[in-house]
Amino acid sequence: MASTEKTAAVLLARSSVTGAASREMEELAASLQATGEVGHVTHAFSEQGTPSLREVLTALAGEGFEEVRILPCLLPMEPGFRVWIDRSINRWRAEEPLQHGPSVRVAQPPGSLGAMQALLRDMLASEPCEPAPTPASALPSAGSLIPSQKRRVLVCQGGPCNNAGAAVIWGHLRNEQKRLNLRTTGDGVMTAKSTCLGPCNLAPVLQVFPEGTYYGGVDEAGIDRIIEEHLLGGRVLRELAYDPLPVKQALR
């Protein structure tokens, strides 16, 4: 086991679409850091939001930490989320072949710990707040603009796709959409999660419109290539694309 100074902890949350969520994770990390029980504490997001788990693991490896403990901050702990954590770690190890990289271990989920009962009691005993009043009308009186983006990317969220890492590619796609200003670049791109898109054995699956192109077996690197070739270049990435055929197709 690594010494305290050589051990880092990563608070792993699902996603962040606002600055407030990121600040809350930063405050939680600082609170744990103040205990002195671990050398360094940071946070990461599994879906939308930065930094990603892969980015954090790479940074901690570069800083020379010998052990990284991932603390999943999720209730309830969905089986698919734990599968995602394991696969993300294994994928990172394969992509970052470090001779002396840190060991990466995953803590037990919060719901399985005895301290959760005490935490729930504290919540029950805390001063409750009244619900905020609902505005008379939540719709803007001036109306809404119709989106001008011509491209749509649907990321399947069916069971097989989630188990195969759909959350990873969704988060990476959303982060790249923001970084590259894809909403306003070229034809413009909008992204959305989808229920099952059909070809489950090609998981994870996404579909690009207006062509309706199916892509299967996509990872973060595949997302980068689809953005460059298809969304920005207007050319279907044949290597990952699957055409509708009257016969069943297997993942290539």
Rank of each mutant, 00 (worst) to 15 (best):
N181K: 12
L182S: 07
L182Y: 02
L182C: 10
R183P: 06
R183F: 12
R183K: 05
R183T: 15
T184M: 02
T184V: 12
T184R: 05
T185F: 00
G186K: 13
G186Y: 07
G186D: 11
G186N: 14
G188T: 14
G188W: 07
G188K: 11
M190S: 02
M190K: 06
T191H: 00
T191G: 09
T191V: 15
A192S: 14
A192L: 08
A192I: 05
A192T: 13
K193P: 14
K193Y: 00
K193H: 06
S194Y: 12
S194T: 15
T195C: 06
T195D: 13
C196G: 15
C196V: 14
C196T: 14
L197G: 07
G198R: 04
P199A: 06
P199M: 04
N201W: 01
N201F: 03
L202P: 13
L202M: 12
L202Q: 07
A203C: 14
A203E: 13
P204E: 01
P204T: 11
P204W: 02
V205L: 04
V205A: 01
L206I: 09
L206K: 02
L206E: 10
Q207L: 09
V208P: 09
V208D: 06
F209E: 14
P210T: 07
P210Y: 09
E211S: 12
T213S: 15
T213M: 04
T213G: 08
Y214V: 11
Y215Q: 02
Y215T: 00
Y215R: 00
G216M: 12
